[in-house]
């Protein structure tokens, strides 16, 4: 089919752009870290630091070659795996080797990612359902009590930062009612094996994150539903004799929520890179905390590099998905 053909062409073209973009991002990251006035080779040096030791460290960390060479080795590692000087070996796809943790970065990421994914996905579902339903309720009761109540929620949600709402939830809900043993806070439970344990760990962090996002989505949904309700085609739907329920569900929401796909996709992609504050408060060892620790404590270049790359990959790929999804929702984009 012609349309299908065009779509495939479009996707492959966009994927190619994505790939080029990722290469540029990765090179940029290497140059930025090279330019920073911090020398990992010196940081890894003991008290009796001599130029010889620093030089040896530099060699060991693979920092004794040019920036482009370092980057090229990283790219090669992604496809062929890498072997390091002390005999460590990371099979493909290798994101490098953390000399700090004596582990391959791929393995570290594989451990942290399910935690971040759980958090992001749980929060995403919560804030979408909460935000959209509150927004619709507020729009339908414009100017009345429910609308005003939801605007209070919006105000609280948008003005309360997660580091406060998170701490409040931990102190006054999770610990006070003894829902989770403080020592087990943030422990990973595989949701397919131990759904209850997973829920105990993730419900409150997801709720913390969702609270902040839901407020924005409530406001967005409310204004879009109100705006769409005054469109001519809604008047037409009413003139046809459709019931208010069908008009809302089939005609208003379809048009009002289409733009949400874009922002929701990008918000979700952003969270997949790690929710630094929430992960921190609830002791979750996700990508966010991993990055922060690598930057502030251990200065673990391979980890910083990988998490940054991963985060930007999520955003770029999600952008592509959102664009394609939008074309499916709006026929005007598809074939005008």
């Amino acid at each position: 089919m012609k349309g299908c053909d065009r779509l495939l062409k479009y996707i492959s073209r966009r994927l190619l752009y994505t790939l080029v973009l990722m290469l540029i991002v990765s090179i940029a990251i290497y140059f930025i870290f090279d330019w920073l006035p911090i020398d990992p080779a010196r940081l890894n040096c003991t008290k009796q630091c001599t130029p010889d030791i620093i030089e040896a460290n530099r060699h060991r960390l693979g920092l004794d070659v040019s920036v482009m060479e370092q980057w090229w080795r990283f790219i090669q590692g992604l496809f062929h795996g890498r072997v390091y000087t002390q005999g460590a070996e990371c099979p493909a796809p290798s994101f490098g080797y953390s000399f700090n943790r004596h582990e391959c970065v791929t393995g570290i990421l594989a451990e942290a990612f399910p935690i971040t994914l759980s958090l992001a996905l749980g929060a995403f579902i919560m804030w979408l359902s909460l935000g959209i339903s509150l927004g619709v309720i507020a729009a339908k009761n414009k100017g009345k009590f429910l609308d005003k109540a939801s605007s209070v929620f919006v105000l609280v949600g948008t003005s309360l930062p997660t580091f406060i709402s998170g701490i409040l939830i931990v102190l006054f809900v999770v610990l006070k009612f003894n829902i989770v043993n403080p020592l087990e806070l943030g422990d990973w439970h595989n949701p397919f094996i131990d759904p209850v344990g997973w829920l105990k760990t993730f419900f409150f962090p997801c709720a913390t994150l969702a609270l902040a996002y839901a407020a924005t989505y409530t406001r967005f949904t409310r204004s879009n539903v109100i705006e769409t309700s005054s469109e001519d085609f809604i008047r037409t739907a009413r003139a046809k004799g459709l019931s208010e329920k069908v008009i809302l569900r089939k005609h208003t929401l379809r048009a009002a929520l289409a733009p949400i796909v874009t922002i929701a996709g990008l918000d979700f992609a952003g969270l997949l890179g790690g929710a630094i504050i929430t992960e921190g408060i609830f002791g979750l060892s996700g990508l966010g905390r991993l990055s922060v620790k690598a930057v502030t404590e251990t200065y673990d270049l391979p980890i910083i590099l990988s998490t940054t790359l991963l985060a930007s990959a999520f955003v770029v790929v999600m952008n592509l998905i959102v664009d394609i999804a939008y074309a499916f929702i709006d026929p005007r984009v598809r074939q005008s």
Binding site: L7, Y10, A327, S336
Partner: peptide, 14 residues
């Protein structure tokens, strides 16, 4: 007098 405009035809994916 002529005025010609260049546009994209065939929509989003083209």
């Amino acid at each position: 007098l002529k005025k010609h405009f260049k546009t994209t035809a065939g929509g989003f994916f083209s």
